[in-house]
Design a protein around this nucleic acid. Structure first.
Length: 291
DNA sequence: CGTATTTGACCTCG
DNA sequence: CGAGGTCAAATACG
């Protein structure tokens, strides 16, 4: 199974490469073609493996029985155990991480603070740690968070003691709909090519009553893999699970998270999706509005 | 113009 | 008291 995941991830990496080089490839159709073929071949292999799979593992089943636990292509390592960073390197935290913006500092008046504004979780309860392969570090320090079919909004970033890389905090974009899901993403100190993703709260959005299990194979790998193609162009490819519900602002379509909107993504989409793109609205899923 | 991201400050827990 | 988690104003972006 891990091999299949590797294949998929490799395909994603290829797609990303293509995306980042698309400009220079544009004038060289042969290169484009070769690149596309490599990508499609990789995904096809993965697809083949998934079509003739070994019996699903217990973990895979568990993933599907817990709606909040489908960061599909990931190898789960946490399982809700205690979240400790026991083996962190003793390096001093890099102080960098604050690039750009250079906003004027003191604009938050101390008296404006709401009491009890932030809360630290006592236990790791409900937390689940995952490790996902991360794209290579890019020049410019652009972090590409792993996607899992959900749309996340970043609300914070912190330098963590003993880690070279900052930890990013995300919450579900549909917080307005009562979805309180959160995740933390951090590049591993000892392995910069791997993200550690900690999921904190379950998604209450996208809890469709209809069964999500469509793929005949083991569920974990292919249900929601995504690739990001450049800044702000997230693509969820996969099955229903990866379909983003349409939020209140979906009409504008001006925001960063967007469904398939580039050729590579479309390719990947075609590879994994049978083509049906049920556009489920958030209201339909949740049957409510909380704003 | 609306929404996401950045980032320093604030809050809570150990 | 320090570290980690969250808030929210300013800013960027489409």
């Amino acid at each position: 199974m891990d091999e299949t995941i590797s294949l998929i991830l490799h395909g994603c990496a290829l797609a990303r490469d293509l995306d980042s080089n698309i400009a220079s490839f544009a004038s060289q159709p042969r290169l484009l073609l070769a690149s596309c073929e490599r990508i499609s071949e990789t995904f096809r292999h993965a697809s083949d493996r998934l079509s003739a799979p070994p019996p699903p593992t217990a973990a895979a089943v568990a993933h599907f029985e817990a709606p909040h636990n489908w960061p599909g292509y990931i190898q789960s390592i946490g399982g809700g155990g205690p979240v400790g960073t026991e083996s962190e390197a003793e390096r001093v935290a890099g102080t960098g991480s604050s690039v750009g913006m250079g906003v004027s500092g003191e604009m938050v008046g101390p008296s404006v603070r709401r009491p009890g504004g932030s809360r630290k979780r006592k236990d790791g309860g409900g937390k689940q740690r995952e490790r996902v392969p991360a794209p290579p570090l890019r020049t410019g320090g652009i972090e590409i968070p792993p996607d899992d079919g959900y749309t996340w909004r970043k609300y914070g970033q912190k330098d963590i003691l003993g880690s070279r890389f900052p930890r990013s905090y995300y919450r579900c974009t549909h917080k307005n709909y009562g979805c309180d899901a959160k995740k933390q993403v951090q590049r591993l100190d000892e392995d910069p090519n791997t993200y550690e993703v900690t999921y904190c709260d379950p998604h209450t959005c996208r809890t469709s009553p209809t069964p999500l299990f469509i793929f005949p194979g083991p569920a974990t790998a292919a249900t929601s893999t995504s690739i990001q193609l450049g800044m702000g162009s997230w693509v969820s490819m996969g099955l229903d699970v990866g379909r983003e519900p349409i939020g209140p602002s979906a009409g504008s379509g001006s925001q960063h998270e967007r469904e398939v909107d580039c050729p590579v993504a479309a390719l990947a989409d075609v590879m994994f999706n049978s083509g049906s793109s049920g556009s489920s609205s958030m209201e339909a899923i949740l049957g409510m509005k909380t704003r």
